[in-house]
């Protein structure tokens, strides 16, 4: 399989997954680009223990989470340099909420929803995205996240409970 074939088979999936994490076109494009550079670099180390799709999914999830982490730390260092704060806790919020899969009339509702989703832990957020947005089965999600189906079930339950609390807090 050539790089071009791998790219065109998976690029929509990677781009849409990145969009669910960052809710912004520019950031999702940057993540997609970085994911396929990684795929190109690591293609020789890919073993057939998992499918190519699962492997690309894992890279895309890790890249999205790393991207958010680096954005958060940049934001934190900027805040602490401006306000001399040493203990600032920041959550990721898409500065320009620009999700092409969401209609303009519903933008505000989704923005509120993602504001709460972004406050969940990385694993809870990932399980919610894979099960409820990407429409993956529990077994597929378990394979991608390298966890058991039982672990996915309990992770989803916790994500659901925490999301409900966060949505109530945010009104």
């Amino acid at each position: 399989m050539t790089f071009e074939e791998i790219y065109f088979e998976h690029h929509k999936m990677v781009y849409n997954l990145a969009l669910q994490y960052v809710q912004n076109i520019e950031d999702a494009e940057e993540i997609t680009q970085d994911v396929f550079i990684k795929v190109f670099d690591k293609i020789n180390s890919f073993n057939n223990k998992s499918s190519m799709k699962t492997w690309v999914y894992r890279i895309a999830i890790n890249q999205s989470l790393d991207f958010i982490k680096s954005k958060k730390s940049k934001k934190r260092s900027l805040l602490s340099s401006v306000f001399s704060l040493s203990d600032t806790t920041t959550t990721f919020e898409a500065i320009n909420f620009n999700h092409p899969g969401i209609e303009l009339e519903q933008k505000e509702t989704y923005q509120k929803l993602f504001k709460s989703i972004n406050k969940l832990s990385n694993n809870q957020k990932t399980v919610l995205i894979l099960l409820k947005i990407e429409d993956k089965s529990q077994a597929e999600t378990a394979e991608i996240m390298n966890l058991s189906v039982k672990a996915i079930e309990s992770l989803f339950q916790r994500a659901k409970n925490n999301l409900e609390i966060l949505l109530n807090q945010n009104g």
Binding site: L19, A28, E29, I102
Partner: peptide, 23 residues
């Protein structure tokens, strides 16, 4: 249901060009 209704977006062709250029 809201989450399930998010439509799939089509990525720009520029991403492939940018990626191959970087590589």
């Amino acid at each position: 249901e809201y989450l399930a209704n998010i439509k799939k977006a089509v990525p720009s062709n520029n991403i492939y060009i940018k990626t191959t250029n970087s590589i």
